[in-house]
Design a binder for these strands. Structure first.
Lengths: 142, 142
DNA sequence: CCGCATCCAACAGGATACTG
DNA sequence: CAGTATCCTGTTGGATGCGG
């Protein structure tokens, strides 16, 4: 039996788990829930661009994976609260550097993209000019 | 002007970046390149389940985002080497805890899934028996 | 309020074949 | 070896309407 999990094997469970946790919505949701438990529509409102359907699906898998708990209070219109489990909290802590990295290096990435697009000659609104010039080839940049 | 980036706004650049870096293949590729630069087919072989098309696409965006450099040596059959930029190295370090978390908590997640599936009564190979029983409802767990 | 079910458009991604 | 181009299918995900 193979006791050492290998993320690079397609069939290893760790691969499947990595696929789930390396997800945009997972990162954002867990981040919010780490601060404090929330209701369904609270999450929906706080995360722009997240549709109700996808939120619903995501929460369900997060619950199944043991990251969040779903508690329904039998109030008049039902009230549902989502909260992190200890396992989920552990994951949230692991994930939070991702958001911070994105914020910290946003500018650097945008610059890199702009530079690359110039090198590739892909000017957005205009046809690629055969005139100017290619080359510029293999200068080590970085 | 808004100086504070907000990952929860749909149009914020950080959101787009988060979407890219929170990606299964990105995590795996950067991890490998952090140890040492690699050739195209080396990456392809080392990462099971990663098709040539997707690897190609992914590497291109990673290059555009300024995470990796692509160096082509004019040998007989051309040789191409991918390596991390300082920015990419910074990201790789941020990403590596993800893989390790997956490995460390693999068992816990699988247990959670099994438990959830039992609660939900979704036995894989069999039709859901109307006989047995529903309920099991709202017991607070965890 | 909290969802699920349905329909449908868009895109991701595998297989294959062909270039420098 | 290191890709690009084409085709074609499966899944993702938005929009909408209904039910507990």
């Amino acid at each position: 039996m193979d006791l050492t999990p290998n993320t690079y094997a397609a069939d290893c469970p760790t691969r499947q788990i990595l696929d789930r946790i390396a997800d945009k919505w997972t990162v954002l949701i867990l981040q919010l829930l780490e601060r404090e438990p929330r209701r369904f529509n609270a999450l929906r409102r706080e995360i722009q661009g997240l549709s109700q359907k996808v939120l619903s699906q995501t929460l369900k898998t997060l619950e199944r994976d043991g990251f969040v708990t779903r508690t329904a209070f039998p109030t008049v219109p039902v009230t549902v609260e989502y909260a992190l489990t200890p396992l989920g909290r552990s994951l949230a802590i692991t994930l939070s550097p991702l958001s911070r990295w994105a914020e910290a290096h946003m500018q650097a990435v945008e610059s890199a993209r702009a530079a690359f697009d110039v090198r590739s000659g892909s000017v957005v609104g205009a046809a690629t000019p055969l005139t100017g010039m290619p080359s510029g080839g293999a200068r080590a940049l970085v």
